[in-house]
Each structure stands twice: as C-alpha cells, then as structure tokens.
C-alpha cells in the first residue's frame, strides 16, 4: 500500500447512505398448480454512498441492479437488511419525508416523463407536494434548474415529445434535483443515448456532482462508462457482490474470475489492442436456480470442489473478491 491515510474533515467523508446485508426477494408463480418459488433478486449487499462520490454497480442483465436501485430510491422495501440515511434507519413509514433526499433517474428518457405535462409543470410538481414554496418561488426554482442542466428558458412551456432523447434525460435529471437531494440513483442513465449525447450527459452529471456534492449510485452494464465515472465499483453476479474495490484497483487488477471475464469480453475501441477473450462455460443460470456454493463456479475455469461446497464471502479489505482462488491477489 502506497496510499497515505488522508486527513479530511469528517463531514466530507461520512457516508450519507449505508446499506447492510440488503436483500430483496420475489415470489414468482411456479406455473399452474405449482408452488410459488422464491427469487432472490438481491441476496445480500453492503455498501455506502459518500457525498461527492460515485459508487458504480456493474453486472449483466438480471443480476439485480434495478432491484437495488428501487430499494435505495425507496420504491421497494428490502426483504432483509437495513438502509440508513444520515445514520437514521430508512423505514417505509418515513419514506415520504426521506424520499426528498434520494432521487432516481431511469434509463428510458421516453417512458419516464408524462407526455401531457409541460416541462415547467413536470419540474414544479415535486415542489407542490413536498414544499411550502409559493407558486412564484416554485417557478423561479424550476427555471433555475432548467438552466443548470443546460436547457433553454423557452423549453419551460414545451411538452416532452418536442425533445430529443438527450434533452429528455436532462429534464429527468432536472426533475430529480428539484428537491435538493443528497443521493442520486442513476439506473443506466446513458445506455439509451448515442455516443455524442452520452458524453454530454456524463459531463453534466460530473459537473452537478462537483457543484452539489451529490452521492451517486451509478448503475450500468457498460464498463467503458463505469471506468470513466466511478470512484468505487461493485461487480454483481446473480444478486450478490462478487467484487468490490476502488475503480483504479479493480480495473488494474481484477480479482474475481467473473470480473476478469467481463473485462475480457468488453470490446475496446482500439484495433491494435491484444485480444485475449475468456470464454465462459455454459449460460447464466436462472436466478430461481442459483447454484450452491459459489454461484459462478459452474462457469468458472478455476473452480474446485471447495467452490461448489462453500459460498465465498467478500473480505473486509477495500479491494476484495468473493472467491477462494482470486486472480491478481497479494
């Protein structure tokens, strides 16, 4: 370790949100006359969100990223585990109050805005419900926000269909910021956008974070994007964190074989780069039939009997993998 301990004011590093052993289960019907089965979409996650920092969560579709996002944004209650906001437990009875502090932006900038409302109305709506601001104050704040996210004053009276995908995502971000949240949950916020628009939205998120010291939970399946935006990264597989670490550590020396495979499968925009793709065995198992032991073992080239017998846990170190035989370790 070359990093010297950093001395900063406690307020700057104190997490705003903390998750402990967070789980979310769904009962899914087993079909006609069959017993419902339990699907553990998120099966135990620990993390914290810090002001001004971005925690990125990556993993393939179905690994539980959006379920996690909905729990953090207080749309769904965790089945097990706890969430705290500023040290206080997040309980459904308090959601209405706490929700001001945690806002969410979704992938689809088309579905998430009411087509019948003008942009101004969309932005002011959260203020009507959650604040005692006068109409004039609400409008002033909405216009200010419009400018902050890079839209023009005349956009205030327009309808969502008059905007491009990138502009709609700006509107969704503006709406999420209306109540001065501390945490922004971003569920694939740029996945539906073209490259040239994507970079502008990523820049906007960077600038807003610097300015407002927002804590981001940034969910993405795109490792190129994650590599750019993240401070910390969690890699998920079938509802569990298989690796966690600082961006630099995780990309430089990935430890979990799944992370290694994911990185090797991500195409690089560099025709000269050496290709060494790891071919995974088999297919992603159904989340209803998660393998015993390490869930990745059936597809892992390093798996041994231990892996199929026992479930590896994530260690306490800042960079750690839930694996008995990690790569690049030590």
């Amino acid at each position: 370790m070359t990093d010297a301990p950093v001395m900063t004011a406690p307020s700057a590093t104190a997490p705003v949100m903390q998750a402990t052993a967070l789980q979310r289960h769904y009962e899914v019907s087993g079909g006609f006359m069959r017993k419902p089965r339990l699907l553990k979409a998120v099966a135990g996650l620990d993390f914290q969100l810090t002001p001004g920092k971005t925690l990125a969560v990556v993993g393939e579709s179905g690994c539980g990223k959006s379920t996690l996002a909905r729990m953090v944004a207080m749309i769904e209650e965790p089945t097990e585990g706890t969430l705290t906001l500023d040290g206080k437990p997040v309980l459904p009875d308090d959601w209405a109050d706490l929700r001001q502090s945690v806002q969410i932006v979704f992938q689809d900038p088309y579905g998430s805005l009411n087509p019948r409302q003008r942009i101004g109305t969309i932005l002011m709506e959260p203020l009507v419900i959650n604040t005692k601001l006068t109409k004039a104050e609400r409008e002033a704040k909405a216009r200010e926000m419009l400018q902050l996210v890079g839209l023009r004053p005349e956009h205030f009276d327009r309808y969502p269909h008059m905007f491009s995908g990138g502009q709609r995502q700006r509107i969704a971000i503006a709406r999420a910021l209306m109540l001065d949240p501390k945490v922004l949950v971003l569920d694939e916020p740029v996945s539906a956008l073209d490259l040239s628009i994507q970079s502008a939205i990523l820049n906007l998120l960077t600038e807003l974070q610097d300015r407002l010291q927002l804590a981001y939970l940034f969910i993405s399946h795109d490792l190129g994007v994650v590599r750019h935006v993240a401070d910390e990264v969690i890699v998920m597989y079938l509802g569990r964190a298989v690796e966690r670490g600082s961006k630099a550590a995780l990309f430089a020396a990935p430890q979990h074989p799944y992370t290694v495979a994911l990185l090797s499968a991500t195409p690089q925009a560099n025709p000269g780069a050496e290709k060494r793709r790891i071919k995974l065995k088999g297919e992603l198992p159904s989340p209803l039939a998660v393998p015993n032991g390490c869930a990745f073992a059936p597809r892992c080239w390093k798996a041994q009997d231990t892996c199929r017998a026992k479930t590896p846990e994530l260690g306490a170190a800042p960079h750690s993998a839930a694996c008995f035989f990690p790569e690049n370790a030590g």
């Binding site: 990138g166 490259l195 040239s196 990523l202 820049n203 960077t206 994007v225 750019h228 690089q268 925009a269």
Partner: peptide, 22 residues
C-alpha cells in the same frame, strides 16, 4: 474524429469532449 474523442474509454480528462448540437 469527434465521435472517437467522445468515447469515455479514450477520455483523458474528467470532462469528455462533446459534439454540440444535434
């Protein structure tokens, strides 16, 4: 050139080069 510059994986700074307009 602008498209290639906008790639996050080619980023050299905290802010990415963008292509203005649509």
């Amino acid at each position: 050139a602008a498209l290639l510059d906008a790639l996050p994986e080619r980023a050299t700074a905290r802010l990415l080069p963008t292509i203005p307009g649509v």
